[in-house]
Design a protein around this nucleic acid. Structure first.
Lengths: 145, 145
DNA sequence: GTCAGTGCAAAGCCTTTGCACAAAT
DNA sequence: ATTTGTGCAAAGGCTTTGCACTGAC
């Protein structure tokens, strides 16, 4: 995705964020190409253009972007280890905001079609599927909290 | 799930693990009821029956169970923050073992059916779906590494 | 001029590791 | 007897926080 300076300013203002130089570089670093980036990777890229930038600034801004819905996390999950006490095949419904997880059943996935989009050799014999959304509680909390 | 002492021993042996007392209590603590448990939670439960147990033992065994396929992680993901440079709606295909993530497209999800299984009020307006499996590389690595 | 953002260093969690002792095979 | 597991304490990695300075509005 390509974004002009003006477009970024508007986007930032729309979400009540100041349009700082660092912030713009960070955002562009993430969306300039599809990919799944770690804070360190983004730090390295941003540092080329803003050598004084700190990793803490990267973290603060990524978090802000995610909270405001400008970016998505690859893993909208709690980052702590959880193991599943349910050994039956089932799927998960996860709240993007509060990270709560509940089990869901149901055959809403067309595995034949899915198989067509999955690269050859990828093993889906025990498929677990996670669906992300916003739980009722979190919808009622104002956007930026 | 209920499991007899004998059943656990067999299960352990089948995977080349010694059937220790702690290990059995830990496993049963996880599978005795469906739920998504943190190591701390399991620690608390196990400690009631084996007061000398340490948190490190919980971690070591949970990891072992997951590696051997006796348990599933709720989040079979890298635990570090990643943001997505792809702002278009898309889904993820994640390798349970090496945690690699790739984008997949395709309409393999029946959202009407899905909606039927999702509790009322859960917002799926921007659904992100993650499908877990084993990538070709990881299939070729032997099970216990 | 005011308020929000940045950068630094320090603190905080969660998780893993190394090692001596204990238990399982 | 040998091998594998346990428990402790210490180390490690990733992420957040507090605070003075800087820059946006």
């Amino acid at each position: 995705m390509q974004l002009s300076h003006e477009q970024f300013r508007e986007l930032a203002w729309k979400h009540g964020m100041a349009a700082t130089h660092q912030r713009e570089i960070i955002f562009k670093a993430v969306v300039s190409a599809p990919g799944h980036y770690s804070p360190e990777q983004i730090y390295a890229v941003v540092k080329r253009r803003v050598p004084s930038v700190s990793l803490a600034t990267i973290y603060k801004n990524l978090r802000l972007f995610v909270e405001n819905g400008l970016l998505q996390e690859v893993t909208p999950h709690s980052s702590t280890l959880r193991v599943d006490g349910n050994l039956e095949p089932h799927h998960h419904l996860v709240c993007t905001r509060c990270k709560s997880v509940q089990d869901i059943a149901g055959d809403f996935v067309d595995f034949k079609r899915l198989a067509r989009h999955v690269p050859g050799g990828f093993d889906l014999t025990q498929p677990l599927i996670e669906v992300f959304g916003l739980c009722p509680r979190c919808q009622n909390r104002k956007t930026t909290s």
